[in-house]
Design a binder for these strands. Structure first.
Lengths: 224, 224
DNA sequence: ATAAGAATGCTAAGAATTTAGCATTTTGAG
DNA sequence: CTCAAAATGCTAAATTCTTAGCATTCTTAT
């Protein structure tokens, strides 16, 4: 399943020195979740910082009609829960484990202590949060400015970065639609357009990219 | 002109102690801009933190066809430019002064020094950035989940909070459309719907809110 | 090899939005 | 008071997107 906000990636742990990592490990309690297990629901009030050690966590919201809206997917090294600490908010999304997942949990009291002891923690958090904020702003701009085919191309290009196989992205159209927040029909049409343009080749559960350079060029031409 | 991301407000300076405020003042250079003056353009590369002392700054992007997309409007106490410091990015938006505006400018070298001297600076920045991030995520959810009349009602309700006149918001439909990123026709229709529901009354350059409570209730019923 | 399940492709009707243009109403400056 | 500018209201055609349903193609487990 493709991710949304975990754009260029910017996991907290990547900004942490060895010393800070050890500090975090020491303060945290590791919790293991099975695939599909619920970490917390929208509205829960348990302040603390969580860091994904392995696996991944999907965030989203179920609204009144039961429709689920995906917000993001965070993989290893990423943190979440800052809003419960710095914005005094209850959990804003539902969080579900994707695959077997281990989370390092730091409750508010321990976190506050750690923040005092390790000045680098605040810096690392700042970097991670700032990058995510600006990714979100970019995404919002795209959402309002770019037609669906371009947004679709961007998502495919993004996924190609973290793809295992070079020149090919393993993903079905339903998941793409889900991530983009549009219907499968629309994504199908958008992908069809892109295929007609010759920058993608559609397969069964995968999308081939004949030329990464040409894809990026095509996108750049259209996102100003 | 209504603002977008400056939601519940969460200006940096509000999270700063007296001591930190003095430190920031000492490190900063104040620059004065006339209404409409350009502070920086998308793509400029001048890392540093800026804080709005008075007036306001509008952020947006002009895309290829010349269409302008508004992102946010930041008033006194708010900061911007974090991305140039923590994400190593060039300016992501065009910034224009709204009204006579004074900006406190701190270049990268001074900022780094200040960050070392004042541990509270990182905390205050974290609070401000986290709140903005989650406001942005909320807004994105709304954008994908809620029909236009509800989004419109939310914006009007938001503006009512910072309105001078109680029970009335001074704003024309074109600006509302601009802020919501939709056409004037669509906003006109949405507002018409809301008027038919009896929760708003449309005027010339203003919108009256018969009952703030009823407006909030109407919104709550529809945002799940 | 085959059947079941997964994924894609396609269609059609309807809803939502956009653009473009023009008529009408309201405001405020002179 | 009058008139120009600003703002709203309205219309119509074109576009995009959605839902719903079904046919077809591909994959994989048995």
């Amino acid at each position: 399943m493709p991710d949304l906000l975990d754009f260029g990636g910017a996991p907290l742990m990547e900004f942490a020195s060895g010393r800070l990592r050890r500090g975090i490990r020491a303060a945290a309690t590791a919790v293991r979740y099975q695939d599909g297990a619920v970490l917390h629901a929208h509205g829960d009030d348990k302040p603390g910082l969580s860091i994904v050690r392995s696996g991944a966590v999907r965030f989203g919201l179920v609204d009144a009609d039961g429709t689920y809206i995906a917000t993001s997917l965070l993989g290893a090294g990423h943190c979440f829960g800052e809003a419960t600490l710095f914005a005094g908010r209850a959990r804003t999304h539902d969080a579900v484990a994707v695959g077997e997942t281990i989370i390092e949990q730091i409750d508010k009291a321990r976190f506050d202590r750690l923040l005092d002891q390790e000045p680098d923690l605040a810096r690392a958090l700042l970097k991670a949060t700032t990058r995510r904020l600006y990714s979100a702003l970019d995404f919002m701009d795209d959402l309002r400015r770019l037609p669906l085919p371009v947004r679709t191309a961007k998502l495919v290009a993004l996924m190609a970065n973290s793809a295992e196989q070079d020149g090919s992205v393993a993903c079905n159209q339903a998941d793409l639609a889900f991530t983009l927040g549009v219907s499968r029909v629309s994504v199908g049409k958008a992908l069809g357009d892109l295929q007609k343009e010759g920058i993608l080749k559609l397969g069964y559960g995968k999308i081939d990219i004949p030329s990464r350079a040409r894809l990026h060029e095509w996108i750049a031409d259209r996102s100003a």
